[in-house]
Each structure stands twice: as C-alpha cells, then as structure tokens.
C-alpha cells in the first residue's frame, strides 16, 4: 500500500505527463525515497496505481542502476570506479573501505548501516577519487579521510 504522501507526490508527477505510465520512473524514485528500496509489494502497489502490470514496471525498475530491488542499508556509499578515479587510485580507497566495513561491492553491513556499491563516473574527475554517500559528494579522497567521513553517517 502506498502512503497518502507517496500517492500525492506520484499524482503530481502523473499530472505532468500525457500518459500515466510515463510517470513510472518518478513514482519509483518517490517510493524509494520514502522506503529506501522497492520491494515486490511496493512495486505492485506502484504498478497498480499507474495502471501497469508488475512486469511492465519491473522491466523499467530493473533497467536502471539506482532503483534498488533488494533491501539496502541506511546509508549508501557509491564509489566511483571509472577511469579518472582508476588513474587516481580508487582501488586503494576500495580496499580501505573493505577493511573498515568488512563488506564488498554489493553488500550491506550486518548492522544495516552501509551498503557499498560501485558507480560509474560521478562527474568530479578533476577531484578524483570521488565517492558519494547519500546526497553528499566527497572529492580528492585519501584513505586517511575515509574514517572521518564515515563517522558522519549513523
């Protein structure tokens, strides 16, 4: 079941497009914003609201990198693994993150605090290596800075 707030926001997006289905991506974003991820139940509820089948919506949802169809932690670390960050040594950052959090790419800490994901270029190549946690971008990373940064996220 979608909350009234979610429905209100989704309906707003629907109003902006010529066909209901066209709001599918916005709707997924809205629900993920509220719930962290898109469970099968959420997917079905959104699909029903948009007049789509679960298949049609999941086809869209699974296409994109940032719709999570599995539960994720409270904080999402997106580490850029693209070329400038490669040159500037994202691999060390990754190794260090693994040591700190004991998780690999695609995993979530047992306390659900962090999910760690690789991510293509974050558009801050002049300040590589770069990572994002939730809404915040951290540039010119060094292994030393990491611990400080992570502290901010409970």
């Amino acid at each position: 079941m979608l909350s009234t707030d979610e429905i209100r926001r989704i309906d707003h997006e629907i109003a902006l497009v010529p066909v209901r289905k066209a709001a599918s991506i916005e709707a997924l974003k809205i629900v993920q914003h509220h719930r962290g991820w898109i469970s099968d139940e959420s997917l079905q509820a959104i699909a029903a609201h948009l007049g789509m089948s679960a298949e049609e919506l999941d086809s869209v949802a699974t296409f994109y990198n940032l719709i999570f169809r599995k539960p994720v932690g409270r904080n999402i670390i997106l580490l850029c693994d693209s070329i400038s960050c490669y040159v500037m040594g994202y691999e060390q950052i990754y190794t260090h993150l693994q040591a700190l959090l004991h998780i690999k790419f695609g995993e979530t800490t047992p306390d659900d605090r962090f999910t760690l994901l690789p991510n293509p270029c974050l558009g801050s190549c002049d300040h590589a290596p770069v990572l994002m946690i939730n809404q915040d971008t951290y540039r010119d990373l060094t292994t030393e800075k990491l611990q400080e940064i992570l502290k901010e996220y409970k």
């Binding site: 497009v17 066209a22 916005e26 997924l28 869209v60 994109y64 990198n65 940032l66 293509p120």
Partner: peptide
Amino acid sequence: IGRYMCGEETALLNALEGKR
C-alpha cells in the same frame, strides 16, 4: 536514475517517457 545510455538522445526520450 542512472544509466549512461540515458545520455544518448533517443534513449533519453525513452527514459523521459518512463520506459527502459
């Protein structure tokens, strides 16, 4: 919501239409 393809102008249109 994240896909390099979205930058390709026709794929972008599909993304805006709520499609793959």
